[in-house]
Computed example of a mutant assay.
Amino acid sequence: MSDAPAVPQAALTWAARAVGPRARVRHVRRLPGGTHAATHLLRIAPPKTEVVLRRFPPRDPAPAREAAVLRALDGLDARAPRLLAVDPAGRHCGAPAVLTSRVPGGADIRPADPEAAARRLGAALALVHAVPRARLSGLRDCMAAARFSAQRAGERTDEGPAAPVVAAHEERLARQPRVLTHFDYWSGNVLWEGSALSGVVDWSGAGSAPRGLDVSWCRLDLVLLHGPVLGHAVADAFHAAYESAARTEVSDLVLWDLFALRNAYRSVTTWLPNYHGLGRTDLTGEDLRARHTAWTAARLHAWRKGRS
């Protein structure tokens, strides 16, 4: 059973019991990407199935939040995992954990056709945001979480060129209608089978917020991945496809872009391991900083032009 020592036996036993009384874990494999949780693919039989175990740091509330979100998603037309079990206090797994079905496919942040991939990213996000609002009850406020997450990462939300503009208009953004929000919608949190987007994963941060939060966060990621020229075109292709699929406009898009840039102002270079883990070893911390700076300048220019 490869990679088995990385997962406590008690956690494997718990996972198997969630599948069936006679089930046993036959194979364990660490999955790439992400730094928040240790993620493993478990092959279990009988019945023969594959599940995903994600274990979080001690006292992390993410598994309980993710369980609530997965119930609200109800499979997302087979594009989101199904909840199998949750161990919020780590009583069985030695750390807070969530067990889900496996969505087919794999991560791919090096698409042969970046604009086509971005259009599929936009359509998939529209599907997320179409989850009925009645299911959002009890989910966390992602606007408040965005500020808290930035502060926990060492950010000061009053720093960076975008900060003054965002501070002056943040309440306006927060008053916009809420949708089910992924909160970390980027290219590494979707799965592909060939050129088809097969699933959206990592729901531990999800909650409710205006649609612009997810849209602007993904646009920033696309610029970081593809650079200041291609990246801008890819980000615009994503946005156009999203609005077409959602059948609505994203209000205050430029301001939302500045919101994402402000929240990532200090931490953007720390994302490098996520990109390297998924094969973009060509990127450097200097690349991420330069692309963040160029995108900030472009969006501030758009903001000033729109107000002139």
Score class of each variant (00 low, 15 high):
Met143Pro: 01
Ala240Gly: 02
Val201Trp: 05
Ala146Ile: 06
Pro164Ile: 09
Phe183Ser: 00
Thr157Cys: 03
Arg247Lys: 15
Val250Gly: 06
Ser187Phe: 00
Leu230Met: 06
Leu197Arg: 11
Asp214Asn: 04
Cys218Asn: 09
Leu258Tyr: 04
Ala174Leu: 06
Ala146Gly: 13
Leu173His: 05
Leu220Phe: 00
Ala144Thr: 11
Ala233Glu: 08
Leu225Asp: 12
Gly212Ser: 03
Ser195Phe: 02
Gly227Asn: 10
Val131Lys: 02
Leu121Arg: 02
Ala260Phe: 05
Arg211Leu: 11
Pro164Arg: 10
Ala206Leu: 00
Arg140Ser: 12
Leu173Pro: 07
Asp214Pro: 06
Val215Thr: 08
Val128Gln: 05
Ser204Phe: 10
Val200Ser: 05
Val165His: 04
Ala235Cys: 06
Ala162Lys: 02
Ala209Gly: 07
Ser244Tyr: 10
Leu191Asp: 08
Arg247Gln: 15
Ala118Met: 06
Ala123Gly: 12
Ser187Met: 00
Ala245Leu: 01
Glu159His: 12
Gly138Ala: 01
Gln151Thr: 14
Ala235Ser: 11
Ala124Val: 09
Gly199Lys: 02
Ala145His: 08
His129Trp: 11
Glu243Asn: 05
Arg152Tyr: 06
Trp256Phe: 15
Ala245Cys: 10
Leu222Ser: 09
Ser137Phe: 09
Val201Gln: 02
Trp186Phe: 12
Arg172Pro: 00
Ala145Asn: 07
Asp214Arg: 06
Ala246Arg: 04
Arg247Glu: 15
Trp192Leu: 04
Asp141Phe: 13
Ala146Asp: 04
Leu253Arg: 13
Trp192Ile: 14
Val190Trp: 08
Trp256Gln: 05
Met143Ala: 12
Leu224Glu: 09
Ser195Glu: 15
Phe148Met: 15
Phe238His: 10
Pro228Glu: 11
Gly207Met: 04
